[in-house]
């Protein structure tokens, strides 16, 4: 529980990732504190730090023997409806934590209660010594309130109907999160294609789009396009296939066409600015795929 052990993570894989994340950020701030945050109606997240000074004081207070033989614990107090003074919780439970851990997800097991957490040590003789006490946290309320407002009373049966119309059965069951929806679509597309088709392209907020799906094994793809280019007087009017073309400032132009099988004619016509001069060129181009 010393400072140099801070910022450890729970699993091997996330521990290695964590190293990159915290580059440059302090591993701790020399504080002795614990903070609890709400995740959902049954889970909260706790992170804590015990400064080396606080550790030294603890050692002095309970003795080196008891500290080294003791176990680090989170003591989770249900303090619903009480002004908590450390002794008057409704109940509490302990979670054993390794001395090198500095954060934990706590399942409280009971809905709609208010919580407070101490981090501390249980000595071999069973005494809990608190090192830091958290903020007070009521987790998100789940379920319809039993309390009815007299001024806005409603029959139970009607209220049940209203809840159904309000979509109470859909709460938390499906998400309308845009990126999640799109990711699912993407995963579906990927699953329809051969596994080798997508070089690990992942998806999400702005997914990297894939190479076009192709068959496994040896393959060949080819197609043809035609480039028509040229130049005329910069102020002339140019049409190709009777469609006007915008000339570059020097009077040149480049057009690119998809070239399908068969014979195509490309009519290029330039008309001078005052309309009295005209030039035409026609290309006849054929493609045959064998």
């Amino acid at each position: 529980m010393t400072e140099n052990l801070s910022s450890r993570f729970k699993t091997e894989s996330s521990a290695s990732a964590a190293v990159g994340r915290i580059t440059g950020l302090p591993r701790g701030y020399g504080d002795t504190k614990i903070i609890i945050l709400p995740r959902d109606p049954l889970w909260m997240y706790a992170y804590w730090e015990v400064a080396s000074q606080a550790y030294a004081e603890l050692k002095k207070k309970i003795g080196e023997d008891k500290l080294s033989g003791g176990k680090w614990m989170l003591r989770v107090y249900d303090i619903t409806g009480v002004a908590f003074d450390g002794t008057n919780s409704n109940r509490f439970f302990d979670i054993a934590i390794g001395s090198d851990i500095d954060n934990w997800y706590i399942n409280v097991g009971e809905l709609n209660r208010v919580w407070c957490v101490d981090v501390g040590v249980i000595t071999p003789d069973g005494q809990f010594v608190s090192v830091a006490r958290s903020n007070v946290l009521g987790l998100p309320r789940q379920g319809v309130s039993p309390i009815t407002d007299e001024q806005w009373a409603i029959l139970q049966q009607e209220f049940d109907r209203l809840l159904r119309l309000s979509g109470v059965d859909k709460i938390g069951r499906s998400s309308f999160d845009l990126t999640k929806l799109m990711r699912e679509r993407w995963e579906e597309i990927v699953s329809l294609s051969l596994p080798s088709s997508f070089g690990g392209a992942s998806s999400g907020a702005r997914p990297v789009a894939p190479e076009e799906a192709r068959a496994k094994g040896f393959w060949l793809k080819a197609d043809t396009e035609l480039i028509v280019y040229g130049a005329t007087e910069p102020d002339a009017r140019l049409t190709v296939q009777n469609q006007p073309v915008t000339l570059r400032p020097d009077g040149s132009f480049t057009l690119r066409f998809y070239l399908p099988d068969g014979q195509q004619e490309y009519l290029i016509e330039a008309v001078s600015k005052d309309g009295d001069m005209k030039r035409q060129i026609t290309f006849v181009v054929g493609r045959e795929t064998k």
Binding site: R21, I22, P38, R39, Y47, S175, D177
Partner: peptide, 22 residues
């Protein structure tokens, strides 16, 4: 307490991938 995220609470913004920021 609620959010419009997946499952309706805060897990999208508080889980093993991002809890280190807090």
């Amino acid at each position: 307490a609620s959010s419009w995220g997946d499952k309706g609470y805060y897990e999208v913004w508080l889980n093993g991938a991002n809890d280190w920021v807090y």
